[in-house]
Design a protein around this nucleic acid. Structure first.
Lengths: 263, 263
DNA sequence: CCGGAATATTCCAAATAATGGAACTCAATT
DNA sequence: AATTGAGTTCCATTATTTGGAATATTCCGG
């Protein structure tokens, strides 16, 4: 008969299916009941049940006995610590981000691209204590954020095209770019300018300027942005911060390239 | 010779093995080569190879082609975001931790227990910008930290005993408690006192006072600590902060218990 | 430029683990 | 007491994983 498989994506092997379940639980954003998960999944009851058992016994999920709900487990926090330190730019970029934050006094975001989406890996709030995981680790859309567009713009042409077509183009605000054509055009402008702007495309009243972090070979490693509200600043005001921003981005790129793990 | 796969888990099924490999890669703390991992693992070459392939194709690991190394992948950061938000106390505790930090002006740690080890889930630095993942997500020993002892002390007797025997009792400093008996005795004292002290047991010159965060049923949910250096403060000085600490711990416990996810 | 060694990757029959339909338990309703 | 619905277990079947060995690739030193 047919190899049954495939739900939404390409889940290879048992591990893939298990991780798929992980994602589903995490995506719910709150403790999930078995029945809920069963309804969304195309696994048979027994299969899903065992998958959940395995993940729970592995500490990837936590099971609340009294409420009979599953939630992401703390083992992930441990693992993520390693991931964040090793394969994100954040630890390397930190001193530069700190310095930029001091200098400009606005909110700074450091982001990387993960599967066409923007993944925030660090953040400094304007003059306020820093957020933690609650912000870092968040994902956002690529087509309507400053960092997203900055990274998309400098992707190799075919990757870029693929990524552009993967976007969902929901009109968050009246200014959101909602077609691949509009986005492609903006990306060309960004490539020419070297920086991108978010002109309230994601959230009303929120603007930002962003620059890509490029390796010497031109590979996109991430992006850095300075965000402000329209009440406190303007696009022109942000544009003045451009030198500080691009300089910092370049410093981070340099530091990342020179960084070698001790052997 | 028995290679004990050190993590608490007995690897059940393929998923368990894969996660075991994940842990190993994460534990290296730097990009790992295939051969390195092979040497440490008791899997045959082909098996390990395929596990790594699967994990990589799932985004749990990242493979650096040019250097031929594996490192934890960004997918983990995404997942951890969910884990941190949902099954850690940190987001709920945040306002209280913030307030305590303001009030006492010393470093605050919020920790939870994960497999007999201390997992830090949040941190406020004394009057300075906060650390991010670089601190949260870190693990530490249970037997020689304030938060660790505070949690151990209030575990149910049999769990406690089990946990005590799981400790490794390395003498980090001259004051480290290095036997199960010494620890058990201290735990009894802590239970009576309601708070624990780290008397330079983990690091020379670092002291702390910690309190458990207990549910109304008495279950250990986590622990909260105020840390200082011996240069700036003394144990007696910290003891004076006890009311502020335990009050905050109680508030967090209350908030956590009343917290219901919206249905 | 050529051998040889170290490392990475693929093959495939045998071993093992995952599968899922159905039966079962348990609690809350009716 | 009977019914429903959620959660859990069973077990013969089936698909996946396994791992020793063969093959490919890369890196060196001569």
């Amino acid at each position: 008969m047919n190899r049954q498989t495939t739900n939404g994506g390409h889940a290879d092997g048992t591990v893939g299916k298990a991780l798929d379940v992980m994602d589903r639980v995490a995506a719910k954003g709150r403790p999930a009941r078995f029945a809920e998960l069963l309804a969304e999944s195309d696994h048979p009851k027994a299969t899903l049940y065992r998958l959940l058992q395995t993940l729970t016994s592995q500490g990837m999920l936590v099971y609340d006995e009294t409420r009979q709900t599953y939630a992401p487990g703390l083992r992930l926090v441990r693992l993520a610590h390693a991931a964040w330190q090793q394969s994100s730019l954040a630890p390397i970029a930190r001193p530069y981000v700190d310095a930029l934050s001091e200098q400009v006094g606005e909110t700074i975001h450091l982001a990387q691209m993960d599967e066409g989406q923007v993944l925030y890996v660090d953040k400094r709030n304007a003059r306020r204590p820093v957020e933690m995981f609650s912000e870092a680790g968040k994902i956002g859309p690529g087509y309507c954020t400053g960092v997203g567009k900055a990274m998309l713009a400098f992707l190799p042409p075919d990757d870029r095209e693929k990524a552009v077509n993967m976007q969902s183009f929901f009109a968050h605000t009246a200014r959101t770019l909602t077609t691949p054509e509009a986005l492609t055009q903006d990306l060309a402008a960004i490539r020419a300018a070297g920086v991108s702007f978010d002109r309230e495309e994601h959230e009303q009243g929120i603007i930002c300027i962003a620059a890509p972090i490029l390796s010497s070979a031109g590979r996109v490693m991430g992006a850095l942005s300075i965000t402000a509200s329209t009440q406190r600043n303007t696009l022109d005001g942000l544009a003045q911060l451009r030198p500080a921003l691009t300089e910092t981005a370049q410093k981070i790129a340099g530091a990342a390239e020179n960084w070698q793990f001790p052997d």
